[in-house]
């Protein structure tokens, strides 16, 4: 090396050292972040303890209720246990008011919440949500074998039964802007709206999926249209910084969907199957 080059390098040494430090720091941060993302203390704890702590409000049958012995029963209870069994752990269910469940997951008091909870887009900075495991939104119910009304687009000139004041009522009023000749038949309850269709007083009913399933389970005169009119998916609430748990819940739901467990739960708790498919909210 020439003397002049050595002098030049000596002059540049502080700048080169600074660049090296910055590069090292960046590499360290990248590594730390990658390792940090992959770590999931909630999932680790579930694995080491063999327990998955799930909160639910047992006051909403058939999703959650208490049996005569005071034990939680229902669709969500069975779903929780099925997911836990899929992982080889035990589900530990803790009762909590539905209004506090999301906050309890956010605060780290629960590993998850499964309680017929809807997807809440404005809470995605606080918690994570799974794919939907049940669709509770508005559906169209028509007489079995009816070919005239397959969707809301076919309602022009039809008689539509709704529960007065419900979301179905609101949507039906909006629909009348498109089809002014839709005849609205308000009833006191969703069951009364469905009965009106079964007895031929209405051509279709616009009601929530839960009411529709419960009614059609015992009355073969009606069928649920497979296309949801307004979606209201039920999802599992998960901690935001639990990427492995989120992934595991997603995979478990897919597996339970694929092997027919979700359909079996619907049959068990509603007495019938649903034509509705669920997935990402």
């Amino acid at each position: 090396m020439l003397k002049a080059e050595r002098i030049n390098l000596r002059r540049r040494w502080p700048a080169l050292a600074a660049v090296a430090v910055v590069l090292l720091l960046a590499a360290f941060l990248l590594l730390w972040q990658t390792v940090g993302v992959a770590r999931d203390r909630v999932w680790d704890h579930i694995q080491t303890s063999g327990q998955w702590l799930v909160g639910m409000d047992p006051s909403f049958p058939p999703f959650q209720d208490l049996d005569e012995a005071g034990q939680p029963v229902g669709f969500d209870v069975d779903l929780t246990r099925a997911i836990a069994a899929h992982w080889g752990v035990e589900a530990q269910i803790e009762g909590l008011g539905f209004d506090g469940l999301v906050d309890a997951v956010q605060a780290g008091r629960l590993d998850s919440a499964i309680s017929a909870l809807p997807y809440q887009p404005e809470r995605t900075e606080d918690v994570a949500f799974s794919d939907a495991y049940f669709e509770a939104g508005l559906v169209l119910v028509t007489p079995t074998g009816s070919i005239g009304v397959a969707s809301v687009d076919d309602l022009a000139g039809r008689r539509l039964a709704v529960e007065w004041g419900s979301e179905g009522d609101v949507q039906a009023r909006l629909l009348r802007r498109r089809f002014p000749d839709v005849v609205l038949l308000p009833s006191d309850t969703p069951q009364a709206a469905l009965l009106a269709v079964a007895e031929g007083q209405a051509d279709a009913a616009l009601v929530d999926h839960i009411s529709a399933l419960q009614f059609t389970a015992s009355d073969a005169r009606l069928a649920i249209s497979p296309q949801v009119v307004v979606s209201d998916p039920y999802v599992i609430v998960l901690p935001r910084k639990a990427p492995v748990l989120q992934q595991q819940v997603g995979e478990a739901l897919q597996a339970l969907q694929a092997d027919g467990t979700l359909d079996a739960l619907t049959t068990r708790w509603f007495g019938t199957t649903s034509p509705m498919r669920v997935g990402s909210p």
Partner: peptide, 16 residues
């Protein structure tokens, strides 16, 4: 109030 789950709620039609 006409919340579907709240114990002090009524049906939407009753609320109206």
């Amino acid at each position: 109030n006409d919340h579907p789950r709240w114990t002090r709620a009524v049906r939407p039609g009753q609320r109206i």
